[in-house]
Design a protein around this nucleic acid. Structure first.
Length: 408
RNA sequence: GCGGUCGUGGUGUAGCCUGGUUAACACGUCUCCCUGUCACGGAGAAGAUCGUGGGUUCAAAUCCCAUCGACCGCG
């Protein structure tokens, strides 16, 4: 049994896309949907009320971060993630597995510089039992993967911690989101095929353990839904195999994980989606840029989360119908025009490029707030418009028009 | 008027005593990057002939003299 129900309302004609509604006890998520990321129980720079006005149905927080600070017990005592952060709608949590990747993303690329390090083991068999010390040290972190789980040091104080699939489920039960993810390993695209297979199979074992741990907690299983994650790197055969395996385990929804190059994304996605049953909601983890989201929608994905909107906004860049612009650039200092003359984002109407350029240059937090709101609103609207286009039977035209304008 | 301190990229400084490769650093500027988060992030670039004039020396930001300017103290 599942705590959510998913209904597909309309499919695209020339592609695998679909529009639907994902019902949760905290409200409906109209799909395709963009899920703003609120890692530490807040979408950086955007109040929940504003987020709602911008059109968000659901937000996603991170297990790794909330476990470290303030600790899942505090969130649980507050009444769960949604209550804690003042968000009344549906919520999701990521498993923390991605940190295994993000802490060691450059492993293999710069490994030659560290051959003297006794931290690097089993290099020849492609088993990075410890990830790149240089990258890790940027965060003051190390992560050690074994079949049981992953040991890692906190980026906050360097203390040692350990996640296993069971522990991740336990934490996510405490956080109490409507939808949460199984603990997985996200590999670097630079890893060889053998390692991609090894990591994928480990992720499958972890998925099975996650599901068992979830079902053991009767109360949580009634209220929360668990999504399994398909891995397999850029290899279509692995993606296919992973999708079959994850589906067979009986999750409430499917996440597509991984780190791709642009060229590999479409193939890996379609290979996986081809193995998925229609009725399960599909979440494309960490995607993405406007074009990638539309690609994902066409490929049959329903949910997307991504930090890019708020992150690039914080760093002074905004999406426009004509592509990304860097507001910190010299020329925008005196451009007294709307952030994007071709689109209206609720709450950002009064502000000009010159104004936000000034705020960004002077390090004012309001600049980050306005740009984050604009970008989140831009992506939310893009996905909403795409949804409407699917319902109206004109998705491919909509997509082509957008891409032509955005990517020139 | 006398004595002293100080003048180095846009800003603030280091280097000067013990002359010697492309004058260093921070911030700022310019450009790029950011896809299951890093708000105070990452990469690259441009930018000073060291106040001015003269002298010593193979060689001066560095030593000497003069001069201009800023500041401090004494009159």
């Amino acid at each position: 049994m599942s705590a959510i129900t998913f209904k597909i309302e309309k499919r695209t004609a020339g592609s695998a896309g679909r529009a639907g509604v994902l019902h949760t006890s905290h409200g409906d998520i109209r799909t395709p949907a963009f899920v703003p990321v609120g890692t530490k129980a807040n979408v950086k720079g955007i109040l929940p009320s504003a987020l709602k006005t911008l059109g968000a149905d659901v937000v996603l927080a991170n297990t790794y971060h909330l476990y470290l600070q303030p600790g899942e017990k505090i969130v649980q005592a507050a009444g769960g993630l949604g209550k804690f952060m003042g968000w009344e709608g549906p919520t999701m949590t990521d498993s923390g597995g991605f940190q295994v990747f993000s802490l060691g993303a450059a492993f293999g690329k710069t490994i030659s510089k560290f051959t003297r390090s006794n931290l690097v083991e089993n290099e020849s068999v492609g088993t990075p039992s410890i990830y790149d010390p240089e990258v890790a040290s940027q965060h003051g972190q190390l992560a050690i993967i074994d079949d049981e789980g992953v040991s890692f040091t906190s980026h906050l104080d360097g203390s040692l911690h350990r996640f296993t699939p069971e522990r991740s489920v336990e934490i996510q039960h405490a956080l109490g989101a409507d939808i949460f993810f199984a603990f997985d390993e996200c590999t670097s695209p630079t890893e060889p095929y053998e390692y991609q297979r090894e990591a994928m199979e480990r992720t499958h074992r972890w998925a099975d353990r996650s599901l068992k741990a979830h079902r053991q907690n009767i109360d949580a299983a009634k209220k929360q839904s668990l999504f399994g994650i398909v891995q397999g790197g850029r290899h279509e055969d692995l993606r296919k195999e992973s999708a079959q395996e994850i589906v067979s385990l009986g999750f409430d929804g499917i996440g597509i994980g991984g780190s791709f190059s642009k060229e590999d994304m479409r193939g890996a996605l379609s290979a996986a989606v081809g193995e998925l049953p229609e009725e399960l909601p599909r979440h494309f983890l960490g995607i993405g840029e406007p074009g990638d989201i539309l690609e994902g929608i066409a490929g049959g994905m329903d949910l997307f989360d991504c930090v890019a909107a708020t992150r690039i906004g914080r760093h002074g860049s905004i999406y426009t119908k004509r592509g990304i612009i860097h507001l910190r650039n010299e020329k925008y200092r005196t451009e007294y025009s709307p952030l994007d003359p071709e689109i209206s984002i609720p709450g950002t109407e009064p502000f000009t490029r010159a104004y936000v350029s000034h705020l960004a240059r002077s390090g004012e937090m309001l600049g980050s707030v306005i740009a984050s709101m604009h970008n989140a609103g831009f992506i939310l609207k893009l996905v909403q418009d795409a949804r409407q286009a699917i319902l109206d039977g004109r998705f491919e035209d909509f997509r082509a028009d957008f891409v032509t304008s955005y990517y020139g």
